[in-house]
Design a protein around this nucleic acid. Structure first.
Lengths: 223, 223
DNA sequence: AGCTCCGCAATGCTGCCGCAACCCTTGTGG
DNA sequence: CCACAAGGGTTGCGGCAGCATTGCGGAGCT
């Protein structure tokens, strides 16, 4: 069994490689995303262990990149980014499991076994909708190349809708995109954001409309 | 989609059922392991959510019991026992994932999706019928790539029929797809859904027709 | 201080959906 | 070939849950 380990903390990587070795698993190790892409092109791995914060970018961006090449290798994300919201993000990007640091080697092994019992699927990442271009990493929006500045929460709602434009986005998904665990919500705050966002999108001539799907969620359509 | 929820905290169970319902998932709920065994014998579930501490024993013991009957239904363990050692124990017993309480509903949904992605026999990621593509996990339907928004219940009926297109679906199967056994029904509500659904499918040019098999159920055919 | 953001709640509105009434279709027996 | 029953189809109605909108006030920022 061979896996790919993408991790930039040398000490952890070495410990992991050693521990995996004792379980009869050969690990290729790289610290850079660019190398990882190349390695997956040349090799077939049974699984991939992926750190999020890497010297040359966000580890999660590797997932759609890999899926686009048609590979459905199971991926377990290993990271200190362990807020529920981040875990959801990772899983919905197509990761098969998500493990917060620090963790016990034995737990990683157990999750690896669980994941290897089956096999996964594909996803993508990138956002243009109507006349808008959204950069979800830098949290910016432009309409016909003109910057549009939105309140933070509205922007998060917008990005979540645009990411799945022409498809319904569950209400709960939107709530998860905007609020974390501690921020409980007791009112129709989300509805209020949608309402205000709609007005702004019309004013800016964004070329999209937000429709409601009763009992399910919302849907962004281009006009 | 139908899942089995084995959980003895009434309040949590109700909140979960409601949340799952909004995601188009019908949940049967029981508080006892003994009932759970019986229910899995009589029903086919797409996944099982399992609490550990239950009135009549340790929830984990249910896993080998279920596997012994040849079922490999995905199981997610929900529990306050969230020490690494306990998680390892659960995973190695054959659970597919392990989630500590308290958790965000949305994280559970994400993990559910991740787990279901790996079991192609039970749940196709996309269902194609006529000109339609149905994504039962995200509750969306498109006709020739144009989104079609349907009321939640009609969507569930449609998905159940499309999943077994060209084959007869028992009336009781359809009822099970839309209602759990707490939601009693006293009228021809299902017929009404079928009727309205037919109209919408014609309007949208979906390229399928729903036929009745008298005294048995319904059948979706491509045109 | 003056601004925006944003949660909250009041208000009015929309449309889902269970229900039941009525009609149509199919099957059976004489 | 008709009568009748039973199941299915269709439709309007009403209750009510969910949604849209908006003013208010607290919080945070400059």
């Amino acid at each position: 069994m061979r896996i790919l380990l993408i991790e930039d903390e040398r000490e952890l990587a070495e410990a992991l490689s050693a521990a995996l070795g004792k379980h009869g698993i050969v690990a290729d190790h790289t610290m850079h995303l660019a190398d990882a892409v190349e390695l997956t092109r040349q090799n077939i791995y049974d699984a991939i262990l992926l750190d999020r914060r890497l010297p040359d970018g966000e580890g999660l961006s590797f997932i759609p990149e890999l899926r686009r090449t048609g590979k459905d290798t199971p991926i377990i994300v290993l990271t200190a980014h362990n807020e529920p919201k981040e875990r959801i993000e990772g899983l919905d990007l197509g990761a098969d499991d998500y493990l917060g640091k620090p963790f016990l080697i034995e737990e990683l092994m157990a999750r690896l076994r669980a994941v290897l019992r089956r096999s996964p699927e594909l996803t993508e990442l990138k956002i243009t909708a109507g006349r808008m271009v959204i950069d979800p990493l830098h949290l910016s929006v432009t309409v016909d190349a003109v910057p549009l500045d939105l309140p933070r929460r509205e922007l998060l709602v917008l990005a979540a809708l645009a990411r799945r434009r022409e498809k319904t986005v569950l209400r709960s998904t939107l709530e998860a995109a905007v609020y974390n665990y501690e921020e409980e919500i007791q009112s129709n705050a989300l509805d209020a954001h949608i309402s205000r966002l709609r007005k702004r999108l019309i004013d800016a001539g964004a070329g999209v409309a937000i429709h409601n799907i009763r009992g399910v969620g919302y849907l962004m359509k281009e006009e």
